[in-house]
């Protein structure tokens, strides 16, 4: 077993365990911490896949930004944490059955499919090629995503503004 494989399995265990915690934790703060480790370990997987830019982005945006925002949101909005924000599951039997079916199908697919093997990429920075791609092949989606963000910003600012209706 190469060291890479060992690291991969370690990361996989962390991802799965923390994801389970994030899903089943009754207290939302615990769930957020579970999510924290999931996202962090996922960044590690990106490093293993030699997607350095993606790994950094993952940590900066998800771990550094979104998750901290989530925690602050919880801490600032609710004093009585245990009373107010408790996640619960209903109709869990159906959920388990559906989940198992989907899992089985996906497992079958993953083993059945003939995945193309990429040539072993050299360990070089992906940032520069990404920059070129964004202004060439993905120019239109790149520019269009600014409209997406504008819409999200407009919508969010409208919804959080105090109601004007008297």
């Amino acid at each position: 077993m190469s060291p890479q494989t060992v690291i991969f399995y370690c990361l996989a265990v962390i991802i799965i365990l923390s994801a389970v915690i994030a899903t089943f934790a009754r207290n939302i703060v615990n769930a957020a911490y579970g999510l924290f480790f999931t996202l962090l370990a996922l960044g590690g997987v990106y490093v293993l896949l030699r997607a350095d830019f993606l790994a950094v982005t993952q940590i900066v945006i998800y771990v550094g930004g979104i998750l901290v925002l989530l925690l602050f949101g919880i801490l600032l909005t609710n004093r009585r944490l245990e009373d107010l924000i408790i996640s619960g599951q209903r109709s869990s039997l159906l959920g388990v059955v559906m989940g198992c079916v989907i899992f089985a199908v996906l497992l079958a697919i993953i083993f059945y499919a003939r995945w193309p093997q990429s040539e072993n990429a050299q360990l070089e920075g992906t940032t520069a090629p990404l920059g070129y791609l964004l202004l060439q092949n993905f120019l239109l989606p790149f520019e269009f995503s600014s409209i997406t963000l504008l819409a999200a910003l407009l919508g969010a600012s409208y919804l959080v503004r105090p109601s004007e209706r008297d």
Binding site: L140, P141, F144, I147, T148, A151, A152, G155
Partner: peptide, 13 residues
């Protein structure tokens, strides 16, 4: 990619 972006941009508003 374009399709997904368009779908999301339609959904958000």
């Amino acid at each position: 990619l374009m399709l997904y972006l368009a779908l999301e941009t339609l959904s958000l508003p």
